[in-house]
C-alpha cells in the first residue's frame, strides 16, 4: 500500500518576497536584542550581588570589542523598536476621541516618539545628576 503524499506548498522565505513583511520580520527581530540586552543586565545584577570583584570583572568585560559591537547593534535595534512601537500604536490601542473627532494616527505616533525622546534624555540627565 502506498502512502498518500499530498502536495504542501513550501513557505520558505515567504516574507522575503514582500517589503511589508521584511519590515515586519525586522521589527519582530528586535526582540532578540531586547532579550540579549536583558540577559547582559541580569548577569551584571547577579555579579553585583556577588561582590565588588565580580562586579568589576563584569564591568571591564563590557569594554571587549565584541560587547561594544553588540551594543552598537542593540542601540540601532532598540531605536528601531521605539520607532515601530509608536508607529503601530494607532492600531494597537483603542481609538481615542478628542472633541468628537478620532485622534489621527500621526498625532498618536508623533506624541509617542516625543515622549520617548523626553524619557531618554530625562534618563540621561538623571544618571548624569546621580553620578556627578
Amino acid at each position: 500500500m502506498s502512502k498518500r503524499r499530498p502536495y504542501v506548498r513550501s513557505m520558505d522565505g515567504w516574507w522575503r518576497k514582500n517589503p511589508y513583511f521584511v519590515e515586519y520580520m525586522i521589527h519582530e527581530g528586535t526582540a532578540l536584542f531586547v532579550a540579549a540586552y536583558a540577559g547582559i543586565l541580569l548577569t551584571g545584577l547577579l555579579r553585583l550581588a556577588q561582590g565588588e570583584a565580580a562586579w568589576n570583572a563584569w564591568l571591564s568585560a563590557l569594554q571587549n570589542p565584541w560587547y561594544i559591537c553588540f551594543h552598537l547593534l542593540a542601540l540601532a535595534a532598540l531605536t528601531y523598536h521605539t520607532y515601530t512601537w509608536f508607529k503601530i500604536m494607532p492600531r494597537t490601542m483603542p481609538p481615542v476621541i478628542v472633541g468628537g473627532q478620532r485622534l489621527s494616527a500621526w498625532a498618536i505616533t508623533g506624541s509617542g516618539l516625543a515622549v520617548a525622546t523626553a524619557a531618554c534624555f530625562g534618563l540621561l540627565a538623571v544618571v548624569w545628576g546621580m553620578a556627578r
Binding site: V34, Y37, T79, T82
Partner: peptide
Amino acid sequence: SALFGPML
C-alpha cells in the same frame, strides 16, 4: 523598552 531602551 520603547521609552528607555535606546538610552539604557
